[in-house]
Nucleic acid binder design. Structure first.
Lengths: 173, 173
DNA sequence: TGCTGCATGTAACTAGTTACATGATTGT
DNA sequence: ACAATCATGTAACTAGTTACATGCAGCA
């Protein structure tokens, strides 16, 4: 999976602007695939050149104009080709776990800071996911809803383990 | 965290060759940071130029010679500077969850394949982690042992959820 | 007066991956 | 005969990130 496949997946439902796409990323798959504007805009341009999507400029009043992209037949084929391609293993990059692994070289203050920062990040994510669930859950496909639930369960799991790691490494929690 | 910081962390304990370092990656932090030879060797070269490590050629009988790298004072400082630097959020890249999210566009056969492949990967990882635990657990620092236990618990969690996702999306499991 | 939201993009860089390339030894 | 282990590396590429750059509308 790369950013292009995911954008094509979004455009399977409805045409969107780069800005819409960014919001869609943040509200749906950001827990297992993050995207930035600097990744999205060049990707859209490239996909337009390749004939996978078409651009239409929409004039708005009181807001900047926007480029709305729609998927083409070639784009749909590319998306289905992605679904057919062999799936790849999940990749995790955890700075927290790397640091914790080397914990014997760290001061108690450093350890405490890492745990606190990580907890804050996870808790914020947890709140965000619950909020998303409340606001859009009934409009989701069963698959989308399940990935959201998975995200919530995963966050809860991480939080519990973080607490365990804190306790076991002598932090007062 | 980048590959250099992790290599420095390994070399804090003992000098190692690129090959040793690769094995160390695979046996310890591969669940939250993967590395390949093509990443390790250039990194070692760069770190040697920067004076963070020194190289010593060790002649072996019946085996190729190896370049053994040891951390320098400057290297230790760089490692401690890493530990002091602000920690970064965990990044997950899950092809499986992206595909599952777009499940409404997939055939039952595709879904089944994705779930099966993912299960095989997780189960293999689970076996690997248990094996690692059996063979080296007593030689680990408490921090290393805890990250290993976390990995095992996390794998179990993923497996349970995978089963749930399979059931909920109409797969016979 | 300043912040947030809407909206788009480029330039320079970094950090990796994939594929290629080699070769001896040990075990099955 | 073949695979696995030990051992090192380069070249070309990809896929992103960070920082920079702009500007209007609406709200407080």
């Amino acid at each position: 999976m790369n950013i292009e496949s995911v954008i094509l997946g979004f455009l399977m439902d409805e045409p969107m602007s780069g800005y819409d796409i960014k919001r869609k990323f943040d509200m749906s798959v950001s827990n297992f695939f993050e995207a930035t504007f600097s990744g999205i805009y060049p990707a859209l341009r490239k996909m337009e050149s390749a004939g996978l999507i078409t651009k239409e400029v929409v004039i708005q009043q009181g807001k900047p104009n926007k480029n709305v992209f729609a998927i083409t037949e070639a784009g749909k084929e590319a998306f289905f080709a992605y679904l057919e391609s062999p799936s790849r293993a999940t990749v995790v990059h955890s700075d927290f776990l790397i640091r914790f692994f080397f914990g014997k070289h760290a001061s108690k203050e450093q350890l405490q800071r890492w745990i606190l920062d990580e907890r804050n990040r996870i808790e914020e994510n947890y709140r965000k996911l619950l909020e998303t669930k409340e606001s859009v859950y009934e409009h989701l496909t069963p698959f989308e809803a399940l990935t959201l639930d998975y995200g919530i369960a995963h966050t809860a799991f991480s939080l519990e383990w973080l607490q365990l790691l804190a306790r076991e490494s002598g932090m007062e929690v």
